[in-house]
Each structure stands twice: as structure tokens, then as C-alpha cells.
Design a protein around this nucleic acid. Structure first.
Length: 498
RNA sequence: GGGCCUGUAGCUCAGUUGGCAGAGCAGCUGACUCUUAAUCAGCGGGUCGAAGGUUCGAAUCCUUCCAGGCUCACCA
């Protein structure tokens, strides 16, 4: 960490010389009135002849990312939050500010002001008449041609990645736009945004291994939440009929290009509707978001050496709706598999699908579905009607109580959303919890716990309702054709350095 | 956790059969009044991821460990 290579030593010397000359190298406020993008949009279209009589003055602040010294003059590029602007330093300003110019480095943060002009090569440039050092940078930036490529450094030192890789900065800006578009969408439709606990006494609302933590004063073990679902439904009981939450969930599982231990989840609930409503809602929501951040409904998927082979995901509704069982039949799974546990187990064995740990018919069907169907669902597809054992919080179908009113949305071969008509019968809910407790006793680490308070809430009465969860990191990956979750999370989890 | 691959200067990368540790950029000194990968001359910069082993001699071969990537398993 405290590398003392000679490049840093050199900059420390400059820092000292600046202080000796009475120039404060850190911390002066500076009012930058102009941004690179504004300058470009206002004056980018003007020719040299049109621009010069205007004598347009501007002031900029940002990081100096290049410096070309000609002795008596120099050129630099200043990078602010919106982009880069070239600055010209004439003989006059260099001669009258020798201490700054002698001790300036690429990476320093500076403020400049001056008149806009066009150079001989026609680049819009600020002819600086003042230069203020705002922050001396002590570490050298990565090289200007190849930039920073090392994935580990890019994640560990995301700040450097953001400085030198403009497309990374763009991508996270886009992510911010997505979150904003989501909030707008829900707010405009009368949903209220709520915050529910991150620390749960009973981890519920999903099947996953939780992180454990401890509250000292209470002498109480707590779990980082794996889902906000049960709290959000308690709010339906309380009388809010449209709620949503965008926040982190935490799951104690392996880290991969598709998994980060903390990830962002949208969950929303609406009273007096069912899962059919949510399919229509989702079919409108996601194309809307796609249009907001991409400008259209067609998004490239994956990367192929031959551009002709490239797959495009088309978000134009309506999307295919097919039951889980029918989707499997279409892929050649014999209908007997759906009726008989042993037939299902045999089918799994015949197809080299590991179901050793899977005890119930529903779980075996789920495994077969994942292996046979999931990766083929590239275009947006709703898979509906899941076995009840997989869905302890969803309402049973009236025509077949072994299945529930649930759908998962698959796009790009991955699950993007999960939704169902919410179970609001307290005794059925209690029974489902008891089944989970039993499964846990049998050694299923992912099975749920009994949540007495949730059952009590249902006993007061929860209106019929539908709820949905959408993994935001994965949705964003899909909308931007990004293959690794690391690239859409600013600070992904890594093992300790050294 | 399993398999495969990677780790060399601040950054991007070479390094042949085991025989003096390399380049470009960045840095330093100097030249240069419109450059943009500025140019020109010169200079400095290394725990070759770590530890151990084989060898007269290891960046290179072997073992273990650390970190990262891809992939499989688990999941969202």
C-alpha cells in the first residue's frame, strides 16, 4: 500500500516545492461555472471565424489527464465529470506562474479560465489566462494508450478505472439512470417507496443461506436479509396498497461473474391484483426502462466473432407465456415425468441431472427445467405455474392446488423476475412454513424458518395481492449486454489484497 | 469447492534451449511559441506474486501457498 517508488517520491518533492512557493496544493474551493459538455454543445458547431469575435470566456475545473510541453507554450486536456476539454497555455501564463508549471503533473486537479478559440487543427480550446492548483496528485495514472486493463486493479481501485476508462464512467451513469427511471415509473403509478430492515431476526422471503451478524447490546444474533418480501407484505396488511423497495439483499454463496454477495433487488407489491396483472405490468415496465436507457427496444446479446451471428434481444411486447410443464414438454420431456416422482427421478438420472439432494417432485422438476429449458429462453418469456413446494409464499391455483399462481421471467437464458399471487390464507401459510421447518430438519440448509409474526399479520387480513422481485444488477447487465456482474457493481466483493 | 489459464518497472506487455532483466508509455535533465500517441537528445527505474526445492547457474523446471480470470457445482 505505501509503495514508495520514485514516481511518487518525485511528486512528493513537487508538493514540497509548491508549499515552499506559498501555493497551497490542497483544498481551495473553486467555482467552475462551465462543464466540458456544455461548452461543446454551445460552441462545438461554431467555426474559428464565428467563435473568435464572441470572445467567449469560460471557467473549468477537473483532472489534468494529458500535458504536452513546448517550452514556451503547452497544451493539456482537463477532464471533468462530463468530458474533456483542451486547454492552451501561452507564453505569458507560463512565465508568470513558474512555480505551478514546474511542479505540475498529469493527474493533478486544476481550475482554469480563459477565452475559447479554435486551434490550427480546429480543436475547441480554452486559452488559459489563469491556472489554479486544486489538488496535487501523488500517484501516477495508468498509461495513456492502453489505459488500465487489469480486472483486479479495475475493481479494487475503481476510482482509477473511472478516471481513465470513460466507457466505465458512462456505464455507471447509465445504471444511475436506470434506477431513476424505475423510481419514476413506480412513483407515477401511485406506488410508495419504503425501506424495510436489512437486519432480520428470521431470514425469510427467499431460499438462500444468510450472513449472520450479532447485536452486542441485545445479545442477539441477526441475519442480513436475503429478501424484503415478508416486511413488504406486512405493509399491505397495514393498508398501503402499492409499495416498492429498491435495496440490497445479501446471500452467503459463491462469488462468480453472475453473483455478488450483496446485490440490488427491486420488490414491489400491489393489492387487489394477481400474477396475470403483473405479467402485463412487467411487459410494459421493462421495455419502458430499456427505451429510457437505450433509446430502443432491441439490445445486442453476447459477443460473437462473426457479427452476422450476433443475437439481438427484442423487448417488444407481447412476450411468450408458457407454463413450466408445457415448456418442458416442448423440449421433449415426457408428460409422465410431471405426474410421477419416480418417473421424474429416473428422467433426471437418464439425463445426468444431479437430484441426489432433491427430495420432492417439485424440486426434481425444477432441476429438469433448469437443465433442459432455461438456457434456451433468450427472448423474453414468462414461465408460469410452478410446483407448490418451490413457492412457500405463493397462492395455490384453484384448478390444481399442487401448483401456484407464479411466473418467472426469463431473458437471455437467465431468470430476471420472479412474481406471484401472494398467499393470504394464514393457515395455509402456517402449514407451508411448517413444511419448510421440516425440510430444514431433514438437512435442507436453504429451507425457510417459521415466521410467527408474519402469520399473525396475515391473521389480521392481507388483501389479495400480487408481488414481484427483479434483480437489478442482472437486469442492467442484460440491458447493456455486460457479461460480468463485476462490471455493473462499482465496488464488487474481492478477497483481501496480499 | 473441482478443472484450465494468468501474475515480470507506476501502466501495457516481450523475455527463445535454464546462462548479465527488456520495450513502449509515464518519470527525470535539456531543446522546442498551435500540439493532441507532439517531436528530438540523454538519464534513472525490478522482492520477475510469495516460500521452499532441483541446478555450477532459475523469471524460465518441480512443490506448496496467495491473488485474479474462465468454467463446472450452488444460486438471483
Amino acid at each position: 500500500m505505501d509503495e514508495t517508488n520514485d514516481l511518487i517520491q518525485e511528486r512528493l518533492k513537487k508538493l514540497g516545492r509548491l508549499r515552499d512557493a506559498g501555493l497551497e496544493p490542497y483544498g481551495n474551493p473553486f467555482t467552475a461555472v462551465d462543464k466540458a459538455s456544455d461548452i461543446l454543445s454551445k460552441f462545438g458547431a461554431l467555426s474559428k471565424e464565428e467563435l473568435e469575435p464572441k470572445k467567449e470566456k469560460c471557467t473549468l475545473a477537473g483532472r489534468m489527464i494529458s500535458f504536452r510541453d513546448f517550452g514556451k507554450t503547452a497544451f493539456a486536456h482537463i477532464q471533468d465529470t462530463t468530458g474533456r476539454t483542451q486547454v492552451y497555455f501561452s507564453k505569458d501564463i507560463i512565465i508568470s506562474n513558474p512555480d505551478i508549471f514546474k511542479n505540475l503533473d498529469i493527474g493533478d486537479i486544476v481550475g482554469v479560465s480563459g477565452q475559447l478559440f479554435r486551434t490550427r487543427t480546429n480543436e475547441l480550446t480554452v486559452n488559459a489566462d489563469s491556472l489554479t492548483l486544486l489538488c496535487k496528485s501523488l500517484r501516477p495514472l495508468p498509461e495513456k494508450w492502453h489505459g488500465l486493463k487489469d480486472i483486479e486493479t479495475r475493481c479494487r481501485q475503481r476510482y482509477v478505472d473511472l478516471i481513465v476508462n470513460p466507457h466505465v464512467k458512462e456505464l455507471f451513469l447509465k445504471r444511475s439512470k436506470l434506477i431513476k427511471a424505475l423510481r419514476n415509473y413506480f412513483d407515477e403509478r401511485g406506488f410508495i417507496e419504503v425501506e424495510t430492515p436489512m437486519m432480520h431476526q428470521i431470514p425469510g422471503g427467499a431460499t438462500a443461506r444468510p450472513f449472520k451478524t450479532h447485536h452486542n447490546a441485545l445479545g442477539l444474533d441477526l441475519y442480513l436479509r436475503i429478501a424484503p418480501e415478508l416486511y413488504l407484505k406486512k405493509l399491505l396488511v397495514g393498508g398501503y396498497d402499492k409499495v416498492y423497495e429498491i435495496n440490497k439483499n445479501f446471500r452467503n454463496e459463491g462469488i462468480s461473474s453472475k453473483h455478488n454477495p450483496e446485490f440490488t433487488m427491486l420488490e414491489f407489491y400491489i393489492a387487489y391484483e394477481d400474477y396475470n396483472f403483473l405479467m402485463n405490468f412487467t411487459e410494459e415496465l421493462i421495455p419502458n426502462l430499456c427505451k429510457d436507457i437505450n433509446g430502443g427496444l432491441r439490445v445486442p446479446f453476447g459477443e460473437s466473432a462473426d457479427p452476422a451471428d450476433n443475437v439481438v434481444i427484442d423487448f417488444t411486447p407481447p412476450w411468450t407465456r408458457i407454463s413450466m410443464v408445457d415448456a418442458m414438454s416442448k423440449e421433449g420431456v415426457d408428460p409422465s415425468v410431471f405426474k410421477d416422482v419416480e418417473k421424474a427421478r429416473q428422467f433426471a438420472l437418464d439425463n445426468k441431472i444431479d437430484v441426489d439432494k432433491k427430495t420432492t417432485h417439485g424440486k426434481i422438476l425444477d432441476e429438469i427445467f433448469k437443465k433442459k429449458v432455461e438456457s434456451r429462453l433468450i427472448q423474453p418469456t414468462f414461465i408460469t405455474d410452478y410446483p407448490v413446494e418451490l413457492s412457500p409464499l405463493a397462492k395455490r391455483r384453484k384448478d390444481n392446488p399442487d401448483f401456484v399462481e407464479r411466473f418467472e421471467l426469463f431473458i437471455g437464458g437467465r431468470e430476471i423476475a420472479n412474481a406471484f399471487s401472494e398467499l393470504n390464507d394464514p393457515s395455509d401459510q402456517k402449514g407451508r412454513f411448517l413444511e419448510q421447518v421440516e425440510a430444514r430438519k431433514q438437512g435442507d440448509e436453504e429451507a425457510g424458518f417459521m415466521d410467527e409474526d408474519f402469520v399473525r399479520a396475515l391473521e389480521y387480513g392481507m388483501p389479495p395481492a400480487a408481488g414481484e422481485g427483479i434483480g437489478i444488477d442482472r437486469l442492467f447487465m442484460l440491458l447493456t449486454n455486460t457479461s460480468s456482474i463485476r462490471d455493473v457493481i462499482l465496488f464488487p466483493q474481492l478477497k483481501p489484497e496480499q
